[in-house]
Design a protein around this nucleic acid. Structure first.
Ligand SMILES: [Mn+2]
Ligand SMILES: [Mn+2]
Ligand SMILES: [Mn+2]
Ligand SMILES: [Mn+2]
Lengths: 220, 220
DNA sequence: TAATTGATTTAGGGCTGTCTAAAAATAATA
DNA sequence: TATTATTTTTAGACAGCCCTAAATCAATTA
């Protein structure tokens, strides 16, 4: 049985996210940027993760996450997202306040705790930011999603997730009235700057810069 | 602002418990036994806690906890007991399963989290083992309690807490049908071995060794 | 292809928290 | 009180996780 320290779990989670989509390797500097630790520290950690065989690591050539690594990363992600749901649904945290606390909570080691929490929350499938929650086997219910800024004029859909979960961005969305679950329609697109105008719930019109729209995921 | 590492918090909590009741000092070996770490490690930690002024430490002569130390210890105890309530009340853990998990949870650093959790649980005053939960200012609602084995024949009362919270002891209580809140009456006492017979909720009769009765606290 | 640039690793060090073995101080006892 | 026993501290080591500075490797460019 492989066991990881909290720091190792955090690195592996970061590596998992960096590996998503592209099947090309992940570099030391990638991890360094994601984790906000120095490349020297990353090299050290990669060696350890390589020894534990959760990544395949070739010095100077980056890494690939292994199947075992994915499994473990998904366990940590599962816990993180379940705690985020708990904090928002039960303790009335707002969605921009939960990330750090959930991170700490997610390192608590107890299989039973995770299962009972999941059950208590009613087996939620998505976290407050719309990200899917892996089940106990690491299976994820994927949803086809598109970036809001890439939608055609006139198309409709539903906001299902955000790419950027920073408090600043989330509070901005709160302010303008965008939220997970909102039904939207693209009313206008400006070629020049990539900004869009969307109608929310057939009621409210919102203007959004390309930067903002590019961080909103929509299910068409 | 003094901040403590998880390990320091654990030591301070142990020291707080060792200081309860008696106003005589606490020795290195006392702490060592409580924490299950070697005396050498304890010496090291006492030096650190002394520097942070949460204890008053004199080499070779033991320590006294300071007012600041008590405050911090009570914060940790508060979190520990709130999480225990959460685990039992909400996640359906049994009272013998919660201690370790609650210990991990109690080190999560977030004032807001503790307050919201307290609120969510309805500001409970006692944990699943009957121990009082300090409020956010560290105030404890004390209950006058007596050891069951010291009660007079014929006296009645209510089980309010257990001194020993080990899984083995708690499971034994479950088995014989003793629980926090149970109304009891002392039906018989055997001088010879200190064992007692009690009637629970005017229904069930239970025989208890002195060892067991000496770990049950009763409010008369 | 040789030199330069940029990415990555290694070396060495700090801090925390634990340990064992040895030294030192205090307490108990003869 | 002198000796012995017990308690406590110090010394030195190691593991985890981070850092800076220096060395090394690989990729780019002239
Ligand atoms: Mn998060
Ligand atoms: Mn999230
Ligand atoms: Mn406990
Ligand atoms: Mn308890």
């Amino acid at each position: 049985m492989i066991t990881l320290t909290p720091a190792e779990e955090n690195y592996l989670k970061a590596i998992y996210h960096l590996s998503e989509g592209g099947k090309k390797g992940v570099s030391t500097n990638d991890v360094s940027a994601e984790m906000k630790t120095k490349p020297a520290s990353v090299s050290d950690m990669l060696r350890k993760l390589g020894e534990k065989e959760v990544i395949e690591y070739r010095k100077y050539y980056g890494l690939h996450i292994t199947e075992e690594g994915k499994k473990l990363a998904l366990q940590t992600i599962r816990k993180h997202r379940l705690w985020e749901v708990f904090l928002v649904e039960k303790l009335k945290f707002s969605w921009d306040e939960v990330h750090e606390v959930a991170d700490e909570l997610s390192h608590v080691k107890s299989r039973v705790l995770t299962q009972r929490l999941d059950e208590y929350l009613g087996f939620p499938k998505f976290d407050p930011h719309g990200d899917p929650i892996p089940d106990e086997y690491g299976d994820i219910r994927a949803r086809p999603r598109q970036l809001l800024n890439e939608l055609d004029l006139g198309s409709t859909g539903q906001i299902v997730a955000v790419k950027d979960s920073s408090p600043a961005f989330l509070r901005y969305l709160d302010k303008v009235g965008a939220y997970i679950g909102a039904r939207i329609k693209v009313m206008d697109k400006t070629e020049f700057d990539g900004s869009v105008e969307i109608l929310v719930d057939n009621k409210k019109s919102i203007f959004m810069s390309k930067d903002v729209a590019g961080n909103i995921l929509v299910m068409v």
